[in-house]
Design a protein around this nucleic acid. Sequence first.
DNA 1: CTTTGTATTTAGAATAATTCCAACTATTGA
DNA 2: TCAATAGTTGGAATTATTCTAAATACAAAG
Lengths: 153, 153
Amino acid sequence: MKGSEKPTDAPLTERLAAKGLRSTTQREKVYGVLLEKRDHPTAEQVFLRAKHSMPDISMATIYNCLDALVGCGLVREVNLDRGATRYCPNMGEHSHFYCDTCGAVYDIDYVARFRASELHLPKGFQPVRYDVSIHGQCPECGGTPRQGRSNGH
Amino acid sequence: MKGSEKPTDAPLTERLAAKGLRSTTQREKVYGVLLEKRDHPTAEQVFLRAKHSMPDISMATIYNCLDALVGCGLVREVNLDRGATRYCPNMGEHSHFYCDTCGAVYDIDYVARFRASELHLPKGFQPVRYDVSIHGQCPECGGTPRQGRSNGH
DNA sequence: CTTTGTATTTAGAATAATTCCAACTATTGA
DNA sequence: TCAATAGTTGGAATTATTCTAAATACAAAG
C-alpha cells in the first residue's frame, strides 16, 4: 500500500487511480474549481477560474482534466443547448432546469414520486445514467418568454 | 380565410404562420429531410441530405430553417454530448438513449409508470418541456464499454 | 399587375468550441 | 539514476455555429 495521499484528495485520487489515471495538481485544481462554485461553468469558465491560482494552466489541460473527472465518475457533462458544454460536480440524483430566456441552469432535486429508473428500456439496452432536464422559464424570467435564440452565448 | 395551402404542408404552414413565419420551399425541404430519416441528424447531415434535391441550399439556411421549425414546435433539439446538436421531428413524449460507445441515438417511448410531470419544481419555475436522456450501452455495444471519447463526431 | 416593404436565402467571413500535435516536464518503477 | 509512460503546454487545426451584406422571393396595397 502507498498511504501517502493528501487526506482531502483521497476520493479524487482513488477514483482516478481506479481508471489508471494519476491525480495531478491540475486535476485537483479543476475539480476544486467545480466544487467551489456550482454554477455549471463551461470549460472556458473553468479555465478562467483555475488561472487565478495557476496562471500557466492551458485550455488543453482543462479539457484533459474535465475528461478525466468525467471518466472516473466525479463530474458530469451537462448539454442543454447549442452552446458550450457545462460541467457539474453534483453526482447525486438531480435534474437541471434550463431557462430558455436567460440561459441559466439550476439544479433541481428529485422528489419521491419521480423515479427515472422506472423508464422501460427495450431488451439489450444497458443504462448507465439518466439525465433529466427541464426547459422553461425561471422565476426571474417567468413573465417574458421570447422568440429567437438570444441568451448570451 | 386563405384555403390555398398544399394539404400535405398545411400543419407546417400553420405552425409557422402562428409564429409569424412563412412556409418556404427550404423549410419544407428541411422538415421533409427530418421526417424522412429519423436518425437524429446534425445540421451538417441535414444539409447534405437536403442538397441532393436542392443543390443551392446553404448552411445558413439550414440553421435558419431548423431554428424556425424548433421555434414553432415541430422539431426539437437534442444535445447529448460535446458534438453537434441533433434534430428530432418526433414531438411525442419520448426520451433518447445515447450509446456512450458508438454515439448512436435511439428514441425510447415512455411507458405508463414514467411521468416526467411528477417531478416537483420549486415555486416560480415554469416548465415548458421535459427532456429525458439515458446514457449507456446500446444492444450492439453491450459488452464493450470504453475509456476515452472516441465515438466518431 | 406594378410597387413597396419585409422575410428569406445565400456565400462567405467571423467567431466559438473543441480537438490535435509535438515538444517539454513530471512521475513511477526497475 | 535511467527509461518508460502519463500529463501538460502553446499553438495550430478542425468543427460547429453565428453573423453580415447583398440578392431574391413574397405578400399586401394601390
